[in-house]
Design a protein around this nucleic acid. Structure first.
Lengths: 349, 349
DNA sequence: TTGTAGGCGTTATCAG
DNA sequence: CTGATAACGCCTACAA
């Protein structure tokens, strides 16, 4: 049962032409109100459903967009996708997701199959291993709108939505300085990635602006892993002098640092303040909640979607490259909040 | 530039028919190796891309599936989606995501637009507010494969993949009993939902099997929120007697419980053991890591995908309803592990 | 206002 | 083995 019914089925039943049915269904002005209502009524009765596929083939527009991310179940990425979906869904778009597993080869593959499916646009955060960008440039050449979010490459004509990582690094460091920290260490990620370079530079700039000496040995490259954070602390504590604060470009490394400091009997934040980056869900649930820079992922997704919509509304030929930079938000929690701790201690006495 | 090129462009250039080109491209046996290779070569040169849309219109198969979840950025759901994507992607399917925001109206809307787009199948976890299931039955009537995961409704002919919530509840409770707990409380979720009823029954069954008295007042309905967990603890501590363990059907409520117990100066797990449910990422990062029942979401997604594949391979008419029940996994951590704590204490002395 | 006809890109059928 | 043709379901000039 439930044969697919088409506009022809309706037109036969009503003894009118399929064209008329089509017009009635599409609010075409060139049609009498009477026939229109009749068509609409019988369409509903016959349980007619528009075949968006045929429509898409005709119009060259599928109303589908693709989103390419490393892993869909990372909190950050799934939140961006949520933002994209929520912004685009009211406009009739569907979101197709693809994972690269941080592998360029998958990235290339995904882009190709997405183009085959005739999506109307692509949103992507490039894989860590992506160096060559021919596959990405190809998308632009085919006139398919492409929008980078978070992890981007600098390619002419491609819009992007990112957060101001420099500012994020600056805010985090400034906050630690204002808490009275004088010797602030920085755990950076892979400095080949722009985002980590920017966070690092934000850190250095804040140190400079507030006349705090940035000790070179205190800038360490640390993976985004709990163990790496612990190891880094041990490395630091093998030096001749130790920091009184850590600004980590990763929440996981920040967590590892806190765990290791605790093992060493060092008090956080009294002796060492810690700030992380990304505002991973776990940071706020900890017994000692971790201060972290929020990348506002849902907002990022929404903005990327808006850029896309503007891009397809605008004239096709004139595709303006738009660079949106969102301001990160510092969520101050106990791991860095000396004032709060002091108050708590006083109130307990 | 980059005009869309079709098989006709290739056929013109080669002075052969489009049909032959099509055959060459599709590994059709009825074609000479020579022409086939020629076509393949020039197709590559001309940068030809198959239009999957036209193919889909012709074949009635889009190679797209839809996944409907309450929120895509919940750890559990995004992990299920990951599993679905990873299992289906090698088979050439794309995954379209939809969110219901726990609202039936959105659910109905999403199902309709998905059907319009001619997807090949739907995966879904129903919204909490869903009572009436006409919109879901409609999908089956249209012969579109539908597979429930986690939150299902009992509808004839619909396959589902869930975890054995009863067993999850049983395992958690059994574990607490084996840790020496005698008065175990249970925080259940909304008992209108099957999953929570099953967890509750698992709890009761374990208590019975081990001859531990289940005190009715210790079975409480608690929301999946941190504050609700805290409140529940306060309620319990206003009773004439208190539990020595909590099995919470929610990790968030478990966390709230632990926080409140700590505020009261009650030691976890020495005085009160706590077990949660879902294995949310944060549970293992806590200073006191929380024991929790893992729902193996990625596996759930993979299995749902497999059921789908079987269903479309099999004859269309004979759609067998398949019920897959996965075994949950108890991750024992410090919040319930008295043995571990004892050892740690001894080693410290 | 309505009908006719052609085409979107592909594939399947039927001749040749 | 290859070519012509129709068809998938819809939309849109153009004609009536």
């Amino acid at each position: 049962m439930a044969e697919k019914i088409t506009i022809y089925d309706i037109s036969n039943k009503l003894n009118i032409s399929a064209a008329t049915v089509s017009r009635a269904l599409n609010n075409n002005p060139k049609i009498s109100l009477k026939t229109k209502e009749l068509v609409l009524k019988t369409a509903a009765e016959m349980n007619y459903k528009q075949n968006r596929l045929a429509q898409a083939l005709k119009s060259g527009k599928t109303n589908n967009v693709g989103v390419i991310v490393p892993y869909i179940n990372r909190s950050f990425f799934s939140s961006v996708i949520r933002g994209i979906e929520e912004e685009l869904s009211p406009h009739g778009y569907h979101v197709i997701i693809c994972q690269t597993h941080e592998d360029v080869h998958n990235e290339i593959e995904q882009i190709n199959t997405l183009l085959n499916t005739q999506i109307d646009g692509i949103f992507m955060s490039v894989a860590k291993t992506t160096q060559d960008t021919k596959h990405i440039e190809k998308v632009v050449k085919e006139n398919t709108p492409l929008i980078f979010f978070d992890r981007k490459k600098n390619i002419d004509g491609i819009s992007s939505v990112v957060i101001d990582d420099f500012k994020g690094g600056y805010l985090a460091t400034e906050h630690l300085i204002k808490q009275g920290c004088k010797k602030i260490a920085h755990f950076s990620g892979d400095l080949n990635l722009e985002i980590y370079r920017n966070r690092h530079e934000g850190y250095l700039a804040a140190m400079k602006d507030y006349d705090v000496t940035a000790i070179p040995k205190f800038s360490m490259q640390v993976n985004s892993k709990i163990e790496s954070g612990s190891t880094a602390i041990n490395d630091l504590w093998n030096l001749s002098e130790q920091p009184d604060a850590i600004f980590s470009a990763s929440d996981y490394a920040a967590l590892g640092a806190i765990q290791e400091l605790k093992r060493k009997g060092i008090k956080v934040p009294e002796e060492v303040g810690v700030v992380g980056f990304s505002n991973e869900p776990f940071t706020k649930y900890m017994e000692l909640p971790i201060t972290s820079v929020d990348q506002t992922p849902v907002e990022m997704g929404r903005n990327a979607a808006k850029v896309f919509l503007e891009q397809i509304e605008g004239s096709k030929t004139l595709s303006i490259e738009k660079k949106v930079v969102l301001t990160p938000k510092l969520n101050i929690r106990e791991s860095s909040n000396r004032e709060l701790i002091k108050k708590l201690l006083v109130s307990k006495e």
